[in-house]
Amino acid sequence: MTEPLRALEVGLAEVRAEWDRLLARVEAGIRLVERGRGWAGGIVEWVTGDVEDGLAVIRHRLGVLRLRLERVLDAAELATARAVPVLAVLDASLAWLPAVVTPVTGVAAALDPPGRNLAYWAGPAKEAYLDVLHEQTGALRQAAGQARVTSEWLADVAMANMAYLTGLADRVAAVAAALTTACLEGGATMAGVLTQFPSSLQDLADLVGTVVGELVSGAAHLAERLAADVASVRRLAGELADHSDLPGGRWPRSVTMNR
């Protein structure tokens, strides 16, 4: 998970830098047009109204692009901030095995079968003990099973987030690339600004708009996966708790003495 996270952080930094660069170029273009507008005879082929309309289109498309970019940046920033706690989920998934699953399974294996010399013990008390032994080791195996389910669920949560994070990093990189190669040609002349900038900005806004849509559906997909996972873990936990080895989800009481 650290790899898509690093890619995301790099992409995020690139998007911010490229956006600043693009903004500076567009603003320079706008200033160029505004200066020329006041200069009599500056442009013969443009009437004032057309110039105003052209600037309005540039400003509008820039605004749309900015809003869409902000949504991408918000998603990327949130993911970056949450990545550390999500990494902790992955760590916890792995930690459940040595902390709980393995030792509980090991305890069951250490108790069952009982010591060989127990063969010298005969009588009903021994039979009662063997019942207790099986009841208790059955409960141990159920508890180990629940712990394993918990560990696997956390791994699924981490994987689902990893898939989203990878997709997000790819899209942020695509946005950064689009901003870098944005074809803001003609920035040196008023006519160039007024004809080239609107279409370049529209292309960028369309591309970023598509990315926003993909991020929304990616987040919805993540939400669905998480909801399905939590539903299945709830169901499994219920089934395990109802199991006769853990009656009512409680540890079986075999002994009433010394309580």
């Binding site: 993911a79 999500v86 902390a99 709980v100 030792p103 989203y164 997000l168 993540l222 996972d229």
Partner: peptide
């Protein structure tokens, strides 16, 4: 050991998704 396995409530989703009680 189970006492050391606590997690942050924010650790279950890197995106802003509805809380499903994870």
């Amino acid at each position: 050991a189970t006492e050391g396995l606590g997690l942050s409530p924010f650790g279950f989703a890197v995106a802003d998704v509805a809380d499903t009680g994870q």
